Simulated assay, not measured.
Amino acid sequence: MVAVRRSFTVDRPVEAVLGYLADFGNTREWDPGTESCTRLDEGPIRVGSRWHNVSRFRGRTTELSYRLVRHEPARLTFVGENRTVTATDDITLSARGDRTEIVYDARLRFKGVARLVAPLLKGEFERLADGVERTLPAVLGAS
């Protein structure tokens, strides 16, 4: 398994941050690896909502089916899967006055022979997490 964590504060209230991040389709705006992320269902975003995510990693395109598995006032959890990996994005929000502290935990559990190369990919996932830490506050500041 590969795990990365980033913590940072943005100049937006928790409710606004939660509303924006609950729509996983917005990842194309703040996740440097995401090329597209399309909602697969309709209606209000809720536990069970699904997205088709296309990302580029190490020069290759990968597709995952994501679903929202936790939607609480201060926490969101998305799980994405394909035949080689299960990705879990767990986002915790804490009010800091009018600001919001975001703790972003991403865990990737590789399947089959892909498990053997997982430790070699940690540095690449750290770089992607650095990109999220730079981009997400800028996007939230502009929204």
Rank of each mutant, 00 (worst) to 15 (best):
V2L: 13
R5D: 07
R6C: 04
S7A: 13
T9P: 08
T9V: 14
V10G: 00
V10N: 00
D11E: 14
R12W: 00
R12Y: 06
P13V: 01
V14Y: 01
A16L: 12
G19D: 11
G19L: 03
Y20A: 04
L21I: 01
A22I: 04
A22K: 10
A22Q: 10
A22N: 08
F24C: 01
F24N: 01
F24M: 10
G25I: 06
N26R: 10
T27P: 00
W30Q: 03
W30G: 00
W30C: 08
D31C: 09
D31I: 05
P32N: 07
T34Y: 02
T34R: 03
E35R: 14
E35W: 09
S36K: 07
C37M: 04
C37K: 02
T38L: 11
L40E: 08
L40D: 05
L40M: 11
D41L: 07
D41Q: 02
D41M: 10
G43Q: 08
P44L: 10
P44M: 11
P44N: 07
I45Y: 01
I45R: 02
I45W: 07
S49W: 01
R50V: 02
H52L: 14
H52Q: 14
N53D: 04
R56Y: 08
G59V: 05
T61A: 01
T62D: 15
T62E: 15
L64K: 13
L64S: 10
Y66V: 02
Y66T: 05
Y66F: 13
R67P: 00
L68A: 00
L68E: 03
V69Y: 03
V69A: 08
V69R: 00
R70N: 07
H71F: 14
E72R: 11
P73H: 09
P73N: 08
P73Y: 04
R75P: 09
R75L: 14
L76A: 03
T77C: 12
T77F: 07
T77G: 03
V79E: 13
E81W: 00
E81P: 00
N82H: 08
R83F: 07
T84Y: 11
V85R: 07
A87S: 13
T88K: 03
D89F: 06
D89Y: 04
I91F: 02
I91K: 03
I91A: 01
T92P: 01
T92Q: 09
S94I: 08
S94G: 11
A95N: 03
R96D: 15
R96E: 15
R96A: 11
D98S: 15
R99N: 13
R99K: 10
T100A: 00
E101W: 06
I102M: 10
Y104E: 09
D105P: 00
D105C: 02
D105R: 12
A106D: 05
R107G: 13
R107D: 12
L108V: 11
F110E: 01
F110T: 02
K111P: 03
K111Q: 10
A114G: 09
R115G: 13
L116Y: 15
V117G: 09
V117K: 14
V117P: 02
P119E: 06
K122F: 09
E124Q: 15
E124H: 14
F125D: 07
F125G: 07
F125A: 11
R127C: 12
R127K: 15
L128P: 07
A129V: 05
G131V: 10
V132F: 01
R134D: 12
R134G: 14
T135F: 02
P137Q: 05
A138H: 07
L140M: 14
G141M: 04
S143A: 15
